[in-house]
Amino acid sequence: MAKKLIELKDITKMYDGTAVVDHINLYINENEFITLLGPSGCGKTTTLRMIGGFEKPDSGEVVMNGAVVNDIPPYERPINTVFQRYALFPHLNVYDNIAFGLRNQKVPKAEIAERVENALKMVSLPNFALRKVANLSGGQMQRVAIARAIVNKPKILLLDEPLAALDLKLRQNMQYELKEMQRKLGITFVYVTHDQEEALTMSDTIVVMKDGVIQQIGTPTGIYNEPKNRFVARFIGESNILDGVYVRQNLVSFMGAEFDCVDTQFADGEPVDVVIRPEDLDIIDAVGAKLIGEVSSSIFRGVHFELCVMVQGKEFVIHTYENRKVGEHVGLRVDSYEIHLMKVEHVEH
């Protein structure tokens, strides 16, 4: 069992009378790469800022290594942050930016020089020490911001949408590098993003948030394959969500047909939400198929085609390697283990 490094106990944070973070409970293990994922305004950044000490929770406790740290200021926490807009000091050059934290700790000069050099190597920016911050590109600033944080060897590194301002290619490279860095340094990463792909790629654990409430905590595969509710299913990847009824053990009915399924935790006759991922639907001949529809659009996506098929007035999204013509009648098939059932939430529509 991994050691709990941070614990958030029943944390609430209000802004102007509305709860931005609403009774959150969460623990973060040592050496974990945990991602807070959600749309903007879901409270993920506020949660991060409370861990960093920039905001105080209105109620609840932030526990670090067993001690409550609600009132400990940021400069006394063993935490460093990579800010969204980098927040590099414009009046200092790259070297002085990175050395800032070490100087605050009164580290000897020779050691500072060595550690800054190593940090620059780590983010692949050797020979950048004397550059002015204003003359760096976005990607380079990002790397300096990361170097400035990791050079202090913090126990925990907080990253607030650090890749949001970078272009796609650079972002993908940085995702890989960050993950590598985390593995090598053995630092706990708490990462905030609204990009589900980023979260799936890098995280050990994903925390999906919405309106200040945690929707689901799990591994990337767990969250992708078994979303807990419609929100998570929609937010993590594309999915077809259908109204269905759990007929009896291993049998579910939707779209006027009955299908075998593997989920078992429902009562007979209980209404359920059925989730089918686009890549799990296969196109077969219309004759004899349980789901028959007409192809309404086809878009080439590089690796696959994205087909939309209208079945009884409901649009299905399907990812397939074989293209079909618009207007063609096709049948749809899905394997029993690829039908995922969720409890119906009445607040959701």
Binding site: R85, F100, N152
Partner: peptide, 21 residues
């Protein structure tokens, strides 16, 4: 930018040092 002051505190500088640096 407020985030510069936060960055400074994040890097271990207390309020007085953040002002000076």
């Amino acid at each position: 930018d407020e985030s510069l002051l936060e960055a400074s505190m994040d890097l271990g500088a207390n309020r007085v040092r953040t002002f000076a640096k």
